[in-house]
Write a protein that binds this DNA or RNA. Structure first.
Lengths: 226, 226
DNA sequence: TCTTTGATTTGACTTAAGTCAATGCCCTCA
DNA sequence: TGAGGGCATTGACTTAAGTCAAATCAAAGA
């Protein structure tokens, strides 16, 4: 697959005029990462940003005691670390491949030049940034306003929306899910058990079925205790 | 003060070429808000975004039980609600003036047209968005990785940086500060007392003096318990 | 099949922080 | 001067969730 073809896998970019895409293809660098391989580290000088063609990666921070807080998990078609390109020159968190992944790299300086020539690209990027801001505001709300059961319920309902069906499988393990919800595996395990006991969900392996969306919604909004 | 003069009070905008500023001045609407007056509500259709010329406003959410989580407090020169302009059409939180404030309003549609004509404006906005994203990521880290004493210490050190001196006065009351830190006034009060008892800070009224920055830093990083 | 290794679950305990209620402290205004 | 109101503090209690340690379970190889 050529760089150009890979670019077209990225939803944010594939609506750009062919000419812009060709320009982008000229500055982009494609490479593969193995599962567990680090992509960049917090405080690294930001040489550019990335787009994920294939695979899955996580953005995370480590506390002093080594507890991991996952800020984001990105899948195919998503862009990450673009923040670094426009503000200061350091990555704000770590990135690591969760699976074997194909990643496009956009060198900072060359992209910046390109951007001044193609205003449409800027507009699309503004849209992406705005959306990301929304997500983060939602995440702050989640972390600050809600208890763990509420966060889990909110997350499950979000998955329901994106999957479009009441039965779906988690594509991350429970350690990672705990990190994403801002808690620890033990607590997550206990909360899942309560959800099962109350008949809100069923779960075998990492396949989940939502049985009582109404109650889950109430829990997600803090209207009800589990 | 003309609209153009007011525009020049906004750091993000005042570096734009005079011509861009004049264009912006043509689409902008200026008005005053009284202390406590609402600016917009969560889920309102987003007709445009705002820039704060004078005063202070808060962006906040309410949980079902009425608990307020302050997401942001903006002062003169800052832009807010710009997210709504590029993503969907609803404001994600409430906004209210904390003081008598002069606010510029940029109508969505007219601004969008302008943006396509002046790519530089887009670049500057991308920078702002990137910075805001940074702040939110930092806030998530704060809320998810740290305890209340750590959040308070981090906040005080941040104030030290922006004020440039070890003695400064809080410009919000302790209820608001508690909200900003994701806690409640009682807890904040107890933590402040501990900080005072340990000689880390002094506080009379809302004037704070940082006495032991080293220990505050350690607490902010979770390296030490109070 | 039998280990081995890592993920998950469970139990016992600790702790940070929230709730509720009472009290204290200014500050303003009549 | 003193009464009222809002902010701030304190105490007693409750609770959600974290820690630590042990027990289970499960998948992957030898």
């Amino acid at each position: 697959m050529t760089d150009l073809d890979q670019l077209k896998q990225i939803p944010l970019l594939n609506q750009l005029p062919e000419e812009d895409l060709k320009n982008l293809a000229r500055i982009v660098v494609s490479r593969e990462y193995l599962a567990g391989e680090d992509i960049f580290y917090e405080n690294d000088s930001a040489k550019g940003f990335f787009a994920l063609v294939k695979g899955r990666i996580k953005i995370y921070k480590l506390s002093f005691m080594g507890k991991e807080q996952i800020l984001h998990i990105f899948g195919p078609g998503e862009i990450f670390a673009e923040v670094a390109v426009f503000s200061d020159q350091k990555y704000p968190a770590n990135a690591q491949a969760l699976q074997k992944s194909t990643i496009l790299f956009f060198p900072r300086q060359r992209f910046r030049e390109l951007l001044t020539q193609t205003p449409d690209l800027g507009l699309h990027l503004l849209g992406l940034f705005a959306l990301r801001l929304r997500e983060l505001v939602a995440k702050i709300e989640e972390l600050s306003l809600k208890e763990v059961p509420a966060r889990l319920a909110a997350h499950l309902l979000l998955l329901l929306e994106t999957e479009g069906k009441t039965t779906f499988s988690l594509n991350i393990n429970k350690n990672q899910l705990a990190g994403l919800l801002g808690t620890i595996p033990e607590t997550l395990s206990r909360v899942i058990k309560k959800f099962k006991d109350k008949g809100l969900i069923e779960m075998n392996g990492n396949v989940i079925t939502l049985k009582d969306q109404e109650t889950l919604k109430e829990i997600a909004q803090g209207l009800r205790r589990i």
